[in-house]
Design a protein around this nucleic acid. Structure first.
Length: 324
DNA sequence: TAGGCCATCTGGTCCT
DNA sequence: AGGACCAGATGGCCTA
């Protein structure tokens, strides 16, 4: 959205003007040596720092040129920043060209996502879906939460108990059955412009997979102390226990070792197009890791092939949550 | 219309 | 000196 914004006008005009000024600049070079002694105030203390030079015509022009150059650089810098942010949007859950996450929400979601994935690596456990979504949505605005929920095929009311006084939080499957409308995301107009289906689907029994006495299901320790929605602000560790070159923490290392080629087909690599055509997610192809769902993802492209993004994201998330 | 988000300009600071 | 980075200010666009 770069049309007609900003008080300064168009970039092209700036460039033209800049050229004109640069040409004029050579003409009155000799004027520039004038300096002005500040003698205006007898009582005023002497001003420190470099003396202010009089703004001659040439100096003014050079100043303008400098300013324009600086503005152009600043614009480019911000465009680069925005490009990077756009790339980030594409690798966090729920990328949508039509309804873009705001900058701040993108950063927050990315932080949550990184942290949640790091926890998966650290613990080696597939998370409970609700825990995962809660972790993703911590600190996000309601619209963004809706968006994430939409992308994950969830009704946000099922995982934001503090915002849903009309619906008991964390219902057991039986209760879930009593609220049939609440457990499938219906794109209810909460999120106009939401990327259209197909999304993966989640059975209520899957969503509410729980163990007695554990509010978030059997894998909850995984997000221990973080997901209590009415607790203090979510503040994951600044340095998640993840190393890019495969330094998993010990418990997971063993599993990973047992899973042999696990990391070769790990979802991170798929994210960046490493999966290749017909790749499997999470050590598919009969890999020894029992938690790893086998998913056929045909025709995977590099991550720049965004038409596959939603499917990819879905596949990854399904793989994560497939707790067989 | 208010508020959120954004792009841009601008001046300051730090670094090379 | 000039570039990178930053934060404040400003005004436009959009939506509830």
């Amino acid at each position: 959205r770069r049309t007609g914004s900003g008080p300064g006008g168009e970039e092209e005009e700036d460039d033209e003007c800049l050229h004109r000024l640069e040409e004029d600049d050579d003409e009155d070079e000799e004027e520039e040596e004038e300096e002005e002694e500040e003698e205006d105030g007898e009582n005023k203390p002497k001003r420190r720092g470099p003396k202010k030079k009089k703004m001659t015509k040439a100096r003014l022009q050079r100043f303008k040129i400098r300013r324009m150059k600086a503005n152009a650089r600043e614009r480019n810098r911000m465009h680069g920043l925005n490009d990077a942010l756009e790339s980030l949007r594409k690798v966090v859950p729920c990328y949508s060209k039509t309804q873009k996450l705001s900058k701040i929400e993108t950063l927050r979601l990315a932080k949550n996502y990184i942290w949640a994935l790091s926890e998966i690596l650290r613990s080696g456990k597939a998370p409970d879906l609700m825990s995962f979504v809660q972790a993703l949505c911590k600190g996000l605005s309601q619209p963004t939460t809706n968006l994430v929920a939409g992308c994950l095929q969830l009704n946000p009311r099922t995982f934001l108990p503090e915002q849903t006084p009309d619906l008991p939080a964390h219902l057991p499957p039986a209760a879930a059955a009593a609220y049939p409308g609440h457990f499938s995301y219906q794109s209810p107009g909460l999120t106009p412009g939401l990327p259209s289906p197909p999304y993966g689907s989640m059975e209520p029994s899957h969503i509410f997979h729980q163990v007695k006495g554990q509010p978030y299901g059997p894998l909850e320790p995984f997000f221990d102390g973080v997901l209590v929605s009415d607790g203090p602000a979510f503040d994951p560790p600044l340095s998640p226990p993840l190393s890019i070159n495969g330094n998993f923490t010990s418990s997971f290392k063993h599993e990973a070792a047992a899973a042999a080629e696990y990391d070769k087909s790990f979802s991170f690599s798929m994210h960046y197009g490493g999966g290749g055509a017909g790749g499997h997610i999470y050590g598919g192809g009969g890999g020894p890791n029992p938690r790893c769902a086998e998913l056929q993802v045909d025709g995977l492209m590099g991550f720049d092939g965004h038409s596959h993004h939603e499917r990819l994201m879905n596949a990854q998330l399904n793989a994560i949550f497939h707790d067989s």
